[in-house]
């Protein structure tokens, strides 16, 4: 955040906006999935929640790690700057890569590995730059993935 010296992490408003956006996206995905699965019964619908558990665990573990790092005396720049921006991308991306590999879904595997790379690479931008770099790279990745999907479908 601009004007902070020493850096103490993103502002509360910025975090609120980010997590509100993540929340809205999660609800939209949930509703869309529910609509798509209406009337479907059987093995995969029973496995639905089980599939979500690794992703939720991968997301939540980052915040446990943040607490542990703060407790161990790490600086706020690392705990509130780098970890919450890069951490979820690395952990959730890795969980998604494992899921995609188990399903032989090569497109999703490539996307998930790219997300992990964005998360790890964006950490080089430092506490004040990591959010911006991760955001821009993730947007570019989503756009490239959409273009690749359309291109592969047409080929």
């Amino acid at each position: 955040m601009r004007g902070q010296n020493p850096y103490s992490g993103p502002s509360g408003t910025a975090l609120l906006e980010l997590y509100a956006f993540v929340g809205v996206a999660a609800v939209a995905v949930g509703l869309d999935g529910r609509r798509a699965r209406a009337g479907v019964s059987g093995r995969s619908s029973q496995q639905g929640w089980m599939r979500a558990i690794p992703f939720m665990a991968a997301f939540l573990v980052v915040y446990v790690l943040m607490g542990a790092l703060r407790f161990d005396g790490f600086s706020t720049a690392i705990v509130y700057g780098i970890i919450p921006a890069a951490g979820p991308l690395i952990t959730v991306g890795a969980a998604a890569a494992g899921y995609a590999a188990a399903r032989n879904d090569w497109q999703m595997l490539g996307f998930a590995i790219a997300v992990v790379a964005v998360g790890a690479g964006s950490a080089f931008a430092g506490p004040s730059g990591v959010w911006g770099v991760a955001g821009v790279c993730l947007c570019a990745l989503v756009v490239c993935s959409a273009i690749a999907k359309v291109w592969l479908r047409r080929a």
Partner: peptide, 15 residues
Amino acid sequence: ALPDGDALSFTRLQK
């Protein structure tokens, strides 16, 4: 289009 082992309700199929 459903994964193996899944079933679709009559009403959804009709829709």
